[in-house]
Design a protein around this nucleic acid. Structure first.
Length: 281
DNA sequence: TGACCCCTGGCC
DNA sequence: GGCCAGGGGTCA
């Protein structure tokens, strides 16, 4: 699914496409990607895109004339560039460019979201305001991670995916970062040492960098959609031997999501993952 | 704070 | 043919 690296790749592609050619026409189908937002306002987006920012998994478009768009790819959304003749399955919204190309927002499951708003209001939207630190945009050190995630009473992985604490990590990259850091997803955030926070911050950066490197290119193919090729270290590998120690990778459910973990490389240790335990530090 | 919901392609 | 996947919003 689109998490921080996938959305960042989408942003880079869009910048490249939209820098070169203005939008001459925007149109969108009547689908639930607009939720409560005004679909007619989407059709008024045109001209040059002055800036395109990413915060967590959100894209913030600023068009000329003060028009703006907040976009979220949901779980299956992607932006692709096609010719006018090419048919794009599940196309929900389109930008027609002056060179004749068409940028489609394609989203089979309709979990994505488009919200046209005046550009001046983009940053004030609740969805954007409530986002925590973005590792790529804001940087992320061990102490900063500890400050953002440490106070959470939720399991470590659940807290990492809390967009209000840290913006951009989803189920896959959170699991991968924890594996790289050798930390169990069920650890209590308050129990991590400064050294562990540092390791985790580094692991998050490494996971994001890997995702960016693997997915750079014109056509988005999400890592988990690459057929038999699983490039992840633990995600989707339940029952397989761990790439480091050969112990079988395990999976369990946390907050309704599947978590993958190597019990050897990511020991839970002596800590009781039980509730209410005042964080030691 | 957690359970549920949306939605459909892909896989068993 | 049925179940699973899950980001994020909503609700109890």
């Amino acid at each position: 699914m689109p998490e921080l690296p996938e959305v960042e790749i989408a942003r880079r592609n869009l910048v490249r496409w939209l820098d070169a050619h203005r939008v001459v026409k925007a149109e969108a189908d009547d689908t639930r990607i607009f939720r409560g937002a005004e679909r007619a306002a989407f059709a008024r987006l045109k001209g040059r895109v002055e800036s395109l920012e990413r915060r967590g998994k959100y894209l913030l478009f600023t068009f000329e004339a003060g028009r703006g768009l907040l976009a979220h790819l949901g779980m299956t959304g992607k932006f692709v560039r096609r010719t006018q003749e090419q048919v794009q399955p599940h196309s929900r919204a389109r930008f027609h460019l002056e060179d004749g190309a068409v940028l489609h927002f394609a989203d089979p499951r309709l979990f994505g979201r488009m919200e046209p708003v005046p550009a001046a209001q983009l940053r004030a939207l609740a969805a954007v305001q409530s986002l925590g630190r973005d590792p790529l945009v804001d940087g992320l050190t061990g102490p900063q991670l500890a400050e953002a995630v440490g106070p959470s009473k939720q399991a470590l992985k659940v807290a990492l995916m809390d967009q209000g604490r840290l913006a951009g990590l989803g189920n896959i990259h959170a699991a991968e970062a924890l594996f790289r850091a050798g930390l169990h997803p069920a650890r209590v955030p308050g129990s991590l040492t400064p050294e562990e926070w540092k390791r985790l911050a580094r692991a998050i950066h490494a996971t994001i960098a890997f995702g960016l490197k693997e997915q750079e290119g014109e056509e988005p193919v999400y890592l988990e959609d690459r057929g038999a090729v699983n490039l992840f270290r633990v995600y989707g590998r339940a029952g397989e031997p761990c790439s480091k120690c050969k112990a079988p990778v395990e999976s369990f459910t946390q907050a309704g999501r599947t978590t993958h973990v190597c019990p050897q490389c990511q020991p839970l240790g002596a800590q009781r993952p039980g509730p209410k335990r005042t964080p030691g530090r």
